[in-house]
Every structure is written in C-alpha cells, then in structure tokens.
Design a protein around this nucleic acid. Structure first.
Lengths: 202, 202, 202, 202
DNA sequence: GATGAATGAGCTTTCATTCAT
DNA sequence: AATGAATGAAAGCTCATTCAT
C-alpha cells in the first residue's frame, strides 16, 4: 500500500529528527542536564509521543552512539580501502576527526561528553564496545594493515588505539574549552607527525 | 588562643574528610548520581552542617579538582626536579599516572568522569584550566625543559600536552571498562616508548 | 442481506474476543495495571479499533461483570430448577463456585479483584446490583424456595446472601494467597455443612 | 535533651497525621486513585517532605494495614480475655466489627478495598498474613478456645475463619453499597446466630 | 557549629482517549 | 472497520538547598 509506505517513511523521518535533536542537546548540555520535556519542545512534539519512538532516555542515547559509530566507521573505511602509505592514512584520519569536530561538533562532543562519561547509561545494552563496534573495527583494520605492510611497529592494539583516540579526543576537548591558541586544523600536521613517529616501525 | 587554634584545626580536618568522601562518591557514581544526603550519611554529619563547609555541590567539586591537580602537580614536580634524561622522565610520569589510577583510582576517575565530562559544573569558577593549573604547569615545565635540553622537538605545547594526557586518560578509561587484555603496568614500556618517539627531537 | 449478517456475526465474535481477553487481563493484573494498548496487543488489534467496540475502559469492565453474572446465574438456575433438598443444593452451589475458581479463575478473580474492589469503576452504570442482577436473583430464588419448603429459616435475605457470598469469596481469596493448607475442593464438605447449619430452619 | 525529645515527639505526631490522612483517602478512593500530591495537599505539607516519612506509597499502605490489624486485634483480645460463652463472644465480635465499620469506616474499608484487593501492593513486605498477624492470631485464639471448651465444632481453622471474616466483610460491603434495607446494627442478631449455628459443636 | 524537617520545582514515564488517514 | 501517531495531564518520586531550633 502506498499509504502505509508513506506513513512508515514519515515515521522514519520523525525518528531521525528526534535522534538529531537529542544528539544536539545531549552534546551541548550532557545527558542529565538534558530533559525530555525540553527535547519535546524543540521538536514541537508532545512528551508522550516521543516515547512512542524511544522507550527510554537511555535507549535513545544508545541509538545515537550507534549511529555516530556507524558514521565515523564509514568515513574511516573509505581511508582503509584506499591504497595509501600509512603516514597519509594517519593524516586523513586526523583530518576527518577534526573536520567532524568542526562541522558536526555534536557527534564528537556526544562521544566525549556522554558516551565516555556517563558509562552507567550504556552499561545495559552497550556493554564493552558493542555500540561503537563499527568505529573500533575500522581503526583495528587500519592498524593491522599498517603492521602487515611493515610500516607500523607490531605492538598491542590498545597501546596504539589509546594513543590515537586519546590524543584526538584530548585535542577536541581542549579546543572545546577554548584553551588552544590555534584552530584544530592548524594542528593536523604536528599531530599526524607525532602519531606517525609514535607508531612507525623501528 | 589555644582553643581557637584547636577549633580551626578540627574544622580543617572535618573539611578534609568531606573532600575525601565527596571525591570517593563523585568518582564512583558521577556528579549527578551522588546526592548530598548520601554524602552526609557517609560522613555521619547532617546535611545542614555540610553546607557550613561548602556552600554548594558545585563548589565542592571545584575544590576537589584543585586538590587533585595539586597532588599530581606535586608528584610531577619531583620528577622535573630530578636530573634525568627525558626518556626516563616520561617513563616516570606514565608510571605515576598509572600507579595513581591503581592505588587511588578516585583521583583519576574524578578527573575523567567528573572534571572532563560535566563541564557545566566547572564553567563558573574553573574556567579554562585555572583549577588544574598546578598540574598543567608542571607538564609544561617538563616539556620546556626537554625542548631546552634539545631532547624534545620544539612544537606547540598543546600538541604535546594533548598527546600525553589524552593518551594516558584513554588508557585508564579502557582499563576501567575492562577492555584491556593486560594490566596498566604492563603497558608502561610500550606507552612510554610511543610518547618518546612522538615527541623526541628529529 | 447475507453479507450484513456475516458482518454482524464477525463483529459479535470480535467483541467476544475482546471481552475474553480483557477479562483475563483485568483478573490477572487488576483494572488499573491493565492498559488498553496491552489489550490491543494481545488481541492483535489497534487501540483505535478497540474503541470502536467499547467506548471506554469502564464500560468494558461493566460489560464483563454482566457476562460473569449471567454465566454464574445460569449455572445456579440449573440447580434451582432441579428437585433437590436444600442441603444438596448448597453443596452444588459451593462446588460450582469452587470449580469455576479452579477452571476459569478469571471470572471469580475479576469479581473479587475488580468488581468488589474498584467500585468507582462501576458506580456510573452498575449502581447497586444491577450488573450482577442475574446472579443475585438466582441466589434469591434458591433462598426463597428453601424458606417456602420449610427447610431454611425465614430471615432477611441479605443475612443469608452475605453469609453465602462472603464465605465463598473469602475462601477463594485465601486460596489465591496460598494461605490454605488444603485445596478448595477439600473444603467443600465443611463449608457446605457450615452454611447449611447457619441457614437451616431451627 | 528536651529539645530533641520535643522534635521526636513532633515527628511522631506528624507521622501519625500522615497515616490517618492516607487511611482516609485510600479507604475512600482506593490505592491507585489516591495520589501523593493530593495527600500532601490535605496534610498541608510538601510532597517532598511526605517522602521523609514514608519512602514509598506502598510502604505507607503497609504501615496502615499493620496499624489496623493491631487495633482490631486489640479489640478482639479483650473479648478473648473475658469469661464468656462462645455465643456471646461471637455476638461481641460481630458488634465490634460493625461498630468499627460505622464509627471508623476507613479502617474496614481500607481492609476490604485496599488490603484485600490490591494484593500487588502488599506482596513485598506483607507476604501471606504477616501484616495482619495480630488480628488473625486473635481470631485463632477465639476459635481454639471455643473448640477447647467443647462449644465449637473441631474443624479446619480456615473453614471457620473464612466464614467469619467473609461474612462480616460481605455485609459491610453490601452496606457500603447502600444495598441493605436495614442498618448493620439491626443485622447483629441474625448474623451472630447464623455464625453460631454454623460453627457450634454437634 | 550542628541538626534534620521542610520546600517545591522538576524529573522520567505512563496512559486513556482522539482523529487524520 | 481499521490503523497507530499524537496528545497532554498527571503520576510517583528526587534532591539541592534553606532555616527554625
């Protein structure tokens, strides 16, 4: 039926609007300081109806992190699939991360301010890394490929992962606090170089 | 008057107990999930009296981060003051950070789970880095000394700071989520080496 | 028209399914803990359509009690129409009540847990005993017949009715709470005897 | 300290007012139709403060049933302790029950409309009969004494208990629904006689 | 300094009912 | 006859903070 299709589409669209609005609010104010009535107001939607789409505030947050992970994972996959020296791959990953932080800051902020911070919100349903699986997997592939090609030093994956992600997250945090004297983009060279030096073979 | 001295001492002691208890609770449960009545109960103290020592939950959290910064800053100062090659200094800083995470996890957890996450709590009174000033200053000294001695590459301080702190914070986070296959101590070698390679001169 | 007949039949059937499902849910979980969306889900029907059959939750509950009254009234009518000594009639009524409690517990549970308890639900539309009229009438006939035949003491009907119904309801309640050391069936003898002794003519 | 004593007294008094007000509301409108804000309004007290006295609506209801049980148990104990023929004891118990229903109808209504009906409210904390223990115990003593003295037939306790309590409860229910043509007091003779006949020896 | 009863705004969530399709 | 998205009022409960004692 065309009608039903139309309705389903509309619902999917509405659902998407909810996710986007919630992402924005959560990223700005944190999980606890964002209230459902506020979200409903921004969406011009009743509180009750919001609950027709997501059965709890926690599940909404979990959906969001899954979508962020899928988005970033996809961006990194493109890089993994290109034939490029590791040095250049690192540069591109750093660039993408900072670009995202600039153009869609909600995504990175949510990651840092909600996902990493309010662990209790994710412990039921997003244990370990299952909700950021896509993203982590691509980083892992990047690393394994680099080791396989002899460009990267062979070490425990988490030593490399912590460096990469901790570093980038830290820089975005400092930027968000207006502590950095330069824009993120201007740090790309230094940071890519540092990461490369840290991880490269011999 | 001896009496007054005694009274002041007692008050300082009580204040200290409050800070320690609050630190423990905030680190364990986060800022919002920790309630003042709960803190009072743990302290065997009335809520009203607690407010005689700290006029709000936020100010209490700010005091805590200042004390953590002072503590860690002090530990790093010792290293800065020793005559050691940079490589060894890095190793010692990493070691101290992980030791603290193991022996007094509240401090690092508070840093990651409260200070970095609930920015709204600190925006009035701890703008920028003023409440973690002592700690940051020592890292800065470590870095400047290394550059001065020619051991470290001369680059924007924050490129180095973000690497150092993001990396260590990231590893402690992964450890807290039980994602790491090894203990933090077993990562000290790899991580110190990575940091050194990232920052060393040419 | 045959079509219309068919349609009317189908509607009656659907209506019946609703009553049965609602009865089950109300009996299990009580009036307030049973929600209309839940009922619709169990019926594989939309909430909107449910409201085409019953215009409110209250009216649905009222319909249910009327049907229960009709069912139990019918069972007792059979006994009233048989030529039996009062002693045996009492025994049969007790037996039927307990059998129903065992085989179709929804009916008795609804009676005790919804009809007797949530009076506010029935005050508009089921005042007094009008919705349990059929059932009460048959008990009245039983009683009048017994008095007429000289087997039962002539007293205010409600003295007898309260004894009969309060007693049986009380036993089913105790049974439902798992307080009774024996099954309801094993109490039939004692209880019938007690009722007979209470009501019999001098 | 006199001050502390005074404060404790005041708190106990307030607690009592809460219990009385809640009892009245619950009895009138049932458990679910009575709201906490409404209770607070009647008590001229804030909602929050109410929760300083009772940590949930359920626990409040449990406290109430315990107090009712204690009250009725006490009244029946007096009868048990008097040297009276069983026939007279029955009469007095019936009288007390109906008197209570007339003078403090909330107590009996709560018993029938909340305790017996909303079992889910009591299942955690008042399993089985533990919250009506005092009352049931006295009925048990009455029954055992009667059997011991040879006045009552020796039968399963619950056969007798169900009769007694179901009967009285049933009559109060009918009275509450304005179905009875006479006042409860006018039924005392008939009912006592019926109970006696039902339970007496031989 | 110390107590803890009191406040009240605000939170997440629920649900009977309606209505455009 | 059927759908289910939408409403919106209201529920139970929490908690930082105040203040009379």
């Amino acid at each position: 039926m065309i009608k039903e299709q139309h309705r389903a589409e509309k619902k999917a669209k509405r659902r998407n609007e909810i996710v986007r609005t919630a992402l924005k609010l959560f990223a700005e104010k944190g999980f606890y300081a964002t209230t459902i009535p506020e979200m409903a107001r921004d969406l011009k939607m009743s509180v009750g109806n919001l609950y027709n789409y997501f059965s709890s505030k926690e599940l909404l947050a979990q959906e969001i992190i899954r979508e962020i992970s899928a988005y970033l994972g996809g961006r990194i996959r493109e890089i993994n699939e290109a034939e490029l020296p590791v040095r250049e791959k690192i540069r591109r990953i750093v660039t993408i991360y900072f670009e995202t932080a600039r153009d869609e800051p909600e995504m990175i902020d949510f990651f840092l301010r909600v996902y990493l911070s309010n662990r209790e919100v994710f412990h039921e349903g997003c244990e370990g890394m299952i909700c950021v699986n896509e993203f982590v997997t691509e980083i892992m592939i990047f690393f394994d490929d680099g080791v396989a090609s002899g460009e990267l030093k062979n070490q425990d994956f988490f030593s490399a992962f912590g460096l990469f992600m901790g570093y980038l997250g830290g820089m975005v945090f400092l930027n968000g606090e207006h502590i950095l004297p330069k824009t993120l983009e201007e740090y790309v060279d230094d940071i890519s170089e540092n990461i490369y030096n840290a991880l490269k073979a011999s």
